[in-house]
Amino acid sequence: MSIQHFRVALIPFFAAFCLPVFAHPETLVKVKDAEDQLGARVGYIELDLNSGKILESFRPEERFPMMSTFKVLLCGAVLSRVDAGQEQLGRRIHYSQNDLVEYSPVTEKHLTDGMTVRELCSAAITMSDNTAANLLLTTIGGPKELTAFLHNMGDHVTRLDRWEPELNEAIPNDERDTTMPAAMATTLRKLLTGELLTLASRQQLIDWMEADKVAGPLLRSALPAGWFIADKSGAGERGSRGIIAALGPDGKPSRIVVIYTTGSQATMDERNRQIAEIGASLIKHW
């Protein structure tokens, strides 16, 4: 067993022997301040990774656009098919120029040779490549099948209805392509620590998230040296922004954090800054 596999296998073990965790309302004060600064709703939840206990939450059962955070769930569904012998990570998928959609920095470079399922998941999570996500959605049967996968996990809230990039439209009061912070946090925890996926697939999923290259201005910008984070960000229309993450000190994750916002007129930089400040408060009061 590799060191990384050992780390993920012992996530519940280490967490069980940690000192009790206590909620700190100071972080919620910052979440509410972010709402004021952005002029928009902000949803927040913080779960203990081992027990699933909610440590703090704000608007945990209000719907927010998922945006690209759905790509972690998508690759979880792909990995479940791999575990069941219905898919192979090494299978190569070929596609054409007509398949390319807006923001496809990886797939646009491989029109000639195609990409493997493993490479597509890596591109979808680490670079948020939209064509990679659409190609992977095709392998599982489309958005409705991802929703069905989530329902089978016990998540009857999260739903995907459309493809990239239309799913980022974020129309107010439109339930399409949305989740709730509580539902997303619980589902992410199941994917990373539950028995739904094999140990190898859980490790692969967290490795992809740990290698995320496009979430630097968010929670990662607030992390002290030595902290662990595996995350996936999302951005959408109407001032929408979000991030889902597993993080913790001492090089291992111990909490799940989900943050979503929508309806702001603020710039992307300002949305990023507010999420980073929430992260800084979380870490300060850990």
Results as ranks from 00 to 15, higher is better:
Val29Phe: 09
Val31Leu: 08
Asp33Val: 10
Glu35Ala: 14
Asp36Arg: 14
Asp36Cys: 14
Gln37Glu: 08
Ala40Gly: 13
Tyr44Leu: 06
Tyr44Phe: 06
Tyr44Lys: 00
Ile45Phe: 15
Leu49Gln: 13
Lys53Gly: 14
Lys53Ala: 12
Ile54Ser: 15
Ile54Tyr: 15
Arg59Tyr: 04
Glu61Val: 11
Glu61Leu: 10
Arg63Val: 08
Pro65Asp: 01
Lys71Asp: 00
Lys71Cys: 00
Cys75Met: 06
Gly76Arg: 00
Val78Trp: 03
Ser80Val: 10
Arg81Ala: 08
Asp83Arg: 04
Gln88Pro: 04
Leu89Pro: 13
Gly90Gln: 12
Gly90Ile: 12
Arg92His: 11
Arg92Ile: 11
Asn98Met: 06
Asn98Arg: 09
Leu100Thr: 12
Val101Cys: 10
Tyr103Asn: 14
Ser104Gln: 02
Ser104Pro: 03
Lys109Gln: 11
Asp113His: 07
Asp113Cys: 11
Met115Arg: 05
Thr116Ser: 10
Arg118Asp: 10
Glu119Cys: 05
Cys121Phe: 00
Ser122Tyr: 13
Ile125Asp: 01
Ile125Pro: 00
Thr126Ile: 07
Met127Val: 11
Ala132Tyr: 00
Asn134Leu: 01
Leu135Ser: 04
Leu136Met: 11
Leu136Asn: 01
Thr139Ser: 15
Gly142Ile: 01
Lys144Ala: 08
Thr147Gln: 08
Leu150Lys: 01
Asn152Lys: 15
Asn152Asp: 14
Gly154His: 08
His156Tyr: 10
His156Lys: 10
Val157Pro: 03
Trp163Cys: 07
Glu166Ile: 10
Leu167Pro: 02
Glu169Met: 11
Ile171Leu: 15
Asn173Val: 08
Asp174Ser: 12
Asp174Asn: 07
Arg176Asn: 11
Arg176Asp: 07
Ala185Arg: 00
Ala185Leu: 01
Thr186Ile: 08
Thr186Cys: 08
Thr187Tyr: 04
Leu188Tyr: 07
Leu192Arg: 01
Leu192Phe: 14
Leu196Ile: 11
Leu197Phe: 14
Leu197Ala: 05
Leu199Phe: 14
Ala200Arg: 14
Ala200Gln: 10
Ser201Leu: 12
Gln204Gly: 05
Trp208Asn: 03
Asp212Asn: 15
Asp212Glu: 04
Ala215Met: 02
Leu218Lys: 03
Leu219Arg: 03
Arg220Lys: 14
Arg220Trp: 02
Ala222Arg: 07
Pro224Ser: 12
Gly226Glu: 10
Phe228Ala: 06
Arg241Met: 04
Ala245Gln: 00
Leu247Ser: 02
Leu247Gln: 00
Gly248Gln: 01
Asp250Asn: 07
Asp250Met: 07
Gly251Tyr: 06
Gly251Asp: 10
Lys252Ser: 11
Ser254Arg: 11
Arg255Asp: 00
Val257Ile: 13
Gly263Gln: 11
Gly263Pro: 05
Ser264Cys: 13
Gln265Trp: 11
Met268Phe: 06
Glu270Thr: 15
Glu277Cys: 06
Glu277Asn: 06
Gly279Thr: 14
Gly279Ser: 12
Ser281Cys: 15
Lys284Glu: 13
